[in-house]
Design a protein around this nucleic acid. Structure first.
Lengths: 202, 202
DNA sequence: ATAGTAGTTGACTGTTTAGTCTAATTTGAT
DNA sequence: ATCAAATTAGACTAAACAGTCAACTACTAT
C-alpha cells in the first residue's frame, strides 16, 4: 500500500553514470539528485549516504551484468571462444560508451575501487566481491580450455589472475588515454598469456 | 634576495602523499596546507589551484624517480635482469609503503590518472607523458633482450605495452585488495608474457 | 645598515555541500 | 470514499570549502 516510485532506481542509475564518467569524489549528492530528478528529501528517504547508494547501485548493476556474462560464458560455448567473445564484447561496449559520452570509461569497478579503497571500507569490500566473481568466469573458461587440451594451464587460478590483471590494466590504459584501440591487443595478449596452441593461423 | 622557504616543496610532498594514500577528490586544499604546515595564503602564493600543484608535484616526483629507474635500467645490466630488478624493487617498495601506511598504495600515476582523466585535462596529459616514459624503460629492456636472443620479441613496443598493462593491473589489484603478495606473481607473469627461454630451471 | 624582494599570516568572503525536518501529496487496499 | 502507508517537496542549518587581501616578516645583496 502507499504510493509507488522508481526514484530509487533513478538514483542508482544516476550515481553509476556520474561515478563512472567522472569520479566518486566529484559526484555530490546534489548532482545525483539533479540527474535523477529527485529531491534531496527523497534521497535521504531511500539512502543514508552516497557510499550506501553507490554500494547498492554497484550491486544491482553487477547483478544484471552477470546475466550477460552467464550467456557469454555459457559452458555450451567452447572455452576459448568464451574469452574471445568477452573481449570482443568489451571492445564494442567501450566503443559505444565513447560514442555516447565522448570518453572511454574503462572498468567501473576498478575505477571506483582504486579511488575509494583506502577510504570507504564497505564499498571496497563490495567491489572486491564483484571482482572475485568476475574472475571466476575467466578461471572456469581457462580450466575448461585446459581440460580440452586447447591450452596448457594446469593452474587455472594463476592464469585467470594473470589474464584479469592484464585486461583490467588495458581497460585502465584505455580510460586514461581515452582510446578504445588500446583494447585491440586484448586477443593477442590473451593468446600470449594462455599460450593458445591454435593461435598462429599462418 | 628576499626570504627563502621550502614551503613549495612541503606542499608538493604533502599533496603526493594525500592523493596517493587517499584520492585526489578527497584531498582538500586545507588538508594539504595542514599536512605541509603552510597557511592558505602561502598556498595561493605558490600555486593557482590544487590541480596545478598536483601537476607540478607529479612532475617533480617523476623526475627523481627517473634517477632510480635509470640505474635499474642501466644498459650495463643484462636486459632481463633489469626487468626482474624492477619488479623486485616494486615489491619491496610496496611492502615498505604498507609497513608505513598500513596500506598497499599501488601506482600513483594510475591511481590519479584513472580518477581525474575525465575531469582534469592538464593533469591527465602530464600523467600520460610520465607513463609513456615509464614504458620506454620496459620497451628498451625488451628490445635488448630480444637482440641478445634471450626472448623472442620482434615487436618490443607491443610486448612492452602488454607487460605494462599486466603490471599496472597487478599493482591496481594490490591496492584494491591491500595485499602485496599479489605482486609475487609479477616475475612469473613476465616470463609468460615475454616467453623467457631460460625460465624453467628444472 | 638598509632597501627591496620573497615569502608569511590570518582574518575575511561567498559558495557549495551534507544532512534534517515538517507538511503536503499520491496511491493501494479495504 | 477513506485510511494508512509510501513518497515527495523544499526550505532550513551548520559545516566545509575555495579563494582573496592587506599588513607583516625575514632575508640578502649591495
Amino acid at each position: 500500500m502507499g504510493r509507488v516510485s522508481d526514484a530509487k532506481e533513478r538514483l542508482m542509475d544516476a550515481v553509476l553514470e556520474l561515478i563512472w564518467s567522472g569520479s566518486y569524489g566529484s559526484t555530490t549528492i546534489d548532482d545525483i539528485c539533479e540527474k535523477a530528478g529527485v529531491k534531496k528529501g527523497s534521497f535521504y528517504y531511500f539512502f543514508d549516504s552516497k557510499s550506501e547508494l553507490a554500494a547498492e547501485a554497484f550491486e544491482a548493476s553487477w547483478k544484471s551484468k552477470r546475466i550477460e556474462l552467464d550467456s557469454i560464458f555459457s559452458p555450451t560455448v567452447p572455452p576459448l571462444e568464451r574469452l574471445h567473445k568477452y573481449f570482443d564484447f568489451g571492445y564494442e561496449f567501450q566503443r559505444e560508451i565513447k560514442a555516447k559520452h565522448g570518453r572511454v570509461l574503462g572498468c567501473p569497478q576498478v575505477t571506483l575501487g582504486c579511488e575509494v579503497c583506502t577510504q570507504e571500507d564497505a564499498l571496497q569490500k563490495k567491489i572486491q566481491v564483484i571482482m572475485d566473481q568476475k574472475r571466476k568466469y575467466i578461471e572456469s573458461a581457462i580450466r575448461d580450455a585446459h581440460a580440452a587440451g586447447e591450452i596448457h594451464a594446469p593452474d587455472a587460478g594463476l592464469k585467470a589472475r594473470m589474464l584479469m590483471a592484464y585486461y583490467e590494466g588495458l581497460l585502465t590504459q584505455a580510460r586514461i588515454q581515452n582510446d578504445v584501440e588500446v583494447l585491440r591487443e586484448a586477443a593477442s595478449g590473451m593468446s600470449t598469456i594462455l599460450g593458445e596452441k591454435v593461435a598462429v593461423t599462418a
